[in-house]
């Protein structure tokens, strides 16, 4: 954990209760988010990217989930063990979240004004009139035209892109230090996606907050993040600055993921496809969880689970052969 860390996640291991007992969804997830940083988390379904984000705010249902190990340190305390009251203060005020589907995140029977005011009244104790004024300013800030009229409307009157702007307005209402955006543009059309990503970029610069963007889309990650964490089957497999990751990925999964993306710039013919399928969370796999699908698998990969090893000041890789041959420092 460095001095400028805003949030520091150490060895986060989350389990869920299933019919067959406790299933490990993510294991040994460790990374820091620095003040003002812009971290992209990329992975396919079941990779654990959303579980990681929800754990940071302890938003998993109690009873069916548990933190087997690890910590999430923010402002001198461990959010995994802090009292619920503390978390309620932190959620929305210090760390805010935007989810994928803006329609199911907004309450259909409350006006936009009500929903933005809720956060303001709760955390800042402002009056209703002041909150309404602030809501209009926030709608302006997320570039909703005609904000003073829109503020009194209900979510169903807004398009998907406008709803996501409202979600972002709610999230930034209290000027959080970290905004977690979980697939914020996945449900949107591509031209609207470009608008929302641009808005998030501008807001990050204007408000100086850190953003953690979760996406399955390498294109979105490349255009948004400064640093990228690649997850596979509940583990971080690679963590690198964005230009390094896209120029010289080190983990075979990262390579495969990039190769299997069809390119907009052409190159017809068959696509590279990673063989096999993503394993279930409780599927027993000896050693590296990517091993069964890996083109470069060796005996050592099955013998022991690889560790996430630093291969430079800012680059970490979870791959035994790659970290052995690349000369660790």
């Amino acid at each position: 954990m460095t001095a400028s860390s805003l949030v520091s996640i150490e060895d986060l291991t989350v389990q869920f209760r299933t019919d067959r007992g406790w299933t490990t969804a993510i294991e040994g997830v460790s990374f820091d988010v620095a003040e003002g940083d812009c971290v992209g988390v990329v992975g396919e379904s079941g990779s654990g990217k959303s579980v990681t984000a929800l754990s940071m705010l302890r938003l998993h249902a109690r009873g069916t989930s548990r933190f087997a190990r690890g910590s999430v340190r923010y402002g001198g305390q461990d959010l995994l063990r802090a009292p619920e009251r503390t978390l309620r203060q932190i959620r929305g005020r210090d760390i805010a979240m935007v989810f994928q589907d803006p329609m199911s995140s907004l309450n259909p029977v409350l006006t936009i004004c009500d929903q933005i005011s809720e956060t303001l009244c709760l955390h800042q104790g402002v009056s209703r009139a002041a909150a309404r004024q602030r809501a209009i300013e926030l709608l302006d800030l997320v570039r909703i035209p005609d904000a003073s009229r829109r503020v009194d409307e209900y979510p169903h009157r807004l398009s998907g892109g406008m709803r996501q702007r409202v979600m972002i307005a709610i999230a930034i209402a209290c000027r959080p230090r970290l905004l977690i955006a979980d697939e914020p543009t996945t449900a949107l059309d591509v031209t609207i996606q470009a608008q929302i990503l641009e808005l998030l970029r501008d807001l990050r610069a204007e408000l100086g907050m850190a953003v953690m963007l979760i996406s399955h889309d390498l294109g979105v990650i490349a255009e948004f993040a400064r640093r990228v964490i690649v997850m596979y089957a509940g583990r971080i497999v690679e963590d690198a600055p964005v230009d390094v990751l896209f120029r010289a990925p080190r983990h075979p999964y990262t390579e495969g993921l990039m190769a299997s993306m069809p390119a907009l710039e052409g190159g017809a013919g068959r696509l590279y496809a990673i063989p096999g399928r993503i394993p279930d969370a409780d599927e027993p796999i000896a050693g590296c969880r990517f091993g069964p699908r890996c083109a470069h698998v060796e005996a050592i990969c099955q013998a022991a689970a690889p560790e996430l090893v630093a291969i430079g000041a800012t680059h970490r890789v979870r791959c035994t052969p790659r970290t052995r041959t690349s000369g660790t420092s």
Binding site: A194, A222, E223, F246, M258
Partner: peptide, 11 residues
Amino acid sequence: ALLDAVPRPDP
């Protein structure tokens, strides 16, 4: 506009 808006895996 549509082609411009597609994010590319190129930082």
